[in-house]
Design a binder for these strands. Structure first.
Lengths: 338, 338
DNA sequence: TAAATTGGAGTTATCGGTAACGCAAATCAT
DNA sequence: ATGATTTGCGTTACCGATAACTCCAATTTA
């Protein structure tokens, strides 16, 4: 491997001079600068970031940990985070925890040992607390995305889950739906809790009774096995006229299962959900959703993270950004009133 | 930051002994091992991967560079690559070039300076050649995904683009379509070239004439501005009865534009495309596609990469895997025969 | 013209680890 | 009992870069 010393030897200068040329610091004559640069090109020199980070104690690399790389919400978020990072001269590494605490733990390990400058993280849920405490302990700045974790204070970007859920239920109720079920993410995920809360509040406000058995909690991530979900649908009696899905993944899976039963949407059953479908909402925009500003989640979160890193000591109080969600009415809800 | 020396001091041993405990190498008594481990826990020690990599000359980190993080083909592929990497004890970092050569160059820089052990890369196209030559020059093993780059010999995983395109056209022709247009990726991308070739061959085999103006080449990635694409559609005269899209992104965009013109699919115009829609093919499975084995692309590519890394010297000849594509007939094609 | 300043570059120590070697004490073989 | 091994751990050097300091020569200033 070509090192700074190889360059130095060939250019008849000291290693320090080469370093100065690379970083454009200190005082060097244009002549030696040109000479060194020429030798660097000739020898195809590439600086060793690890050696540099070791002495500088910073990497200028940030880490983005998402929970589901196949979900358009997170991929769009990633684009936002990437744009903000690049704009500020940081490189961004991605990880995908797959809504799995162990995978998350694996990435935490990479994060700590790699000594990245900061982390943007969508935690798998409340059990992520120890992971966040680790980051705090090792003084690694981080910003949470989409999900709060009780027990830790930090910068965070959230969606207005409660209000969004209310809007979905209101929308259904306004069309005359009275039997509304909820398929939701795990109650160990704050956004799922808020969505449930919004659902329950909206039922009450619309004068509808709450039936516990109409609420099913599972993972926000895609299931390899749909039998449990299918069993819950079977157990619904009477069949609700509408289902609220806690996110787009659940909506897709539920729709698949309903169709297998020969049910048509919205003729036989209505469905609405959280999160839009990225580009695919374009081709068959038939599901009524509460769309979140995925790109903004990433962009603003990254901006907060970088602010935090660059201010460090005099950083000020923790910031919390709540992004509004927008109801997009399409054609997955049947009108039951006349 | 807690270092190996802090541990050594507190445990009354040398730094080397601590290193031995961490790596479980050399000879240490159970007693000292336990003592050191205890101190490490007490002090929340985390090894500094950069210092370690610097001396070991390897990172056990691999890099996956894809061209469109919002495309289900690539996200599914990513899952496959991740699984294979994890299984072999490697950590995986992701990058997203956005079909953009400059962004790709940026990631190349990260790759070289970070000294990752290997790279799995879907190149943006033929102009990526210098980037690959850089990797070769710096002796970083890499495996190409989905796209060949003339001028470089290496391990590669490809889809059978020509055959896939033939199947799509055959499918249309078998339903009586005679005016078939093609929206394709850039001709600087090998898979786009092969798809075009398959399209042209299939036209000929079906006795259909080739009209240059019915072929439009653009990027495989999502466009921020659809006017050019829309202008091409306007220019088509006569309007073809069917369109073949070079990938799912193009299909989605074209469908959107067609619908804006009030055209219904498949009643007014038929459409078929390369690549499935990931989970979203589930909810409205109306587009006939040639589905590629995205997960396998990632899994097998990663496996090849790791083989290459672990054998290094006696690696054998370059390997080329061609994954078959499967026609999935749905309802986006109108039957024109009686 | 002598003193002070400044420009240009080299020296040395260090970041946090690990490999290779060395060496005393403990264990083994004869 | 004594030489030969083995065990357990320390020393030293180095991975590739940079910060802080030093030093000489050229230039400016008084």
């Amino acid at each position: 491997m070509v090192t700074i010393y190889d360059i130095a030897a060939k250019a008849n200068v000291s290693a320090m001079t080469v370093s100065r040329v690379i970083n454009n610091t200190g005082r060097i004559s244009e002549k030696t600068k040109a000479k060194v640069k020429k030798v660097m090109e000739e020898m195809n020199y590439v600086p060793n970031q690890m050696a540099r980070s070791l002495v500088l104690q910073q990497t200028r690399i940030l880490f983005l940990l998402i929970t589901d790389i196949t979900n358009p919400f997170y991929t769009t978020l990633s684009r936002g985070a990437e744009d903000a990072a690049t704009k500020n001269g940081y490189r961004l590494l991605f990880g995908n925890s797959d809504e799995n605490l162990e995978k998350e733990a694996g990435y935490m390990n990479t994060i700590l040992t790699t000594r990245v400058d900061g982390v943007l993280i969508a935690p798998t849920g409340d059990p992520s607390l120890p992971h966040l405490e680790q980051l705090r302990l090792h003084n690694i700045p981080f910003v949470l995305l989409d999900r709060e974790v009780p027990g830790i204070e930090c910068d965070i970007v959230l969606g207005d889950s409660k209000e969004g859920a209310r809007q979905l239920v209101d929308q259904l109720a306004s069309q005359g739906h009275q039997h509304i079920a909820l398929v939701n993410g795990s109650s160990s995920v704050s956004s799922a809790r808020m969505r449930r809360l919004g659902y329950e509040e909206a039922l009450k406000l619309n004068g509808l009774p709450l039936h516990e058995e109409r609420v099913f909690e599972t993972s926000f991530g895609p299931r390899s096995d749909l039998t449990e979900l299918d069993a819950w649908i079977s157990s619904l009696d009477p069949m609700p006229s509408a289902i609220v899905a806690g996110n787009n993944v659940l909506a897709v899976e539920v729709i698949g299962l309903l169709r297998k039963r020969g049910l048509r949407i919205p003729d036989d059953i209505s469905i609405v959900c959280f999160d839009d479908f990225g580009p695919y909402s374009e081709i068959d925009p038939f599901i009524t959703v509460v769309a979140q500003q995925a790109y903004q989640f990433g962009y603003m979160g990254m901006q907060m993270l970088i602010d935090r890193i660059q201010n460090r000591e005099d950083a000020g109080p923790w910031k919390k950004i709540v992004l509004p969600a927008e109801l997009v009415v399409r054609s997955s809800v049947k009108r039951l009133l006349d």
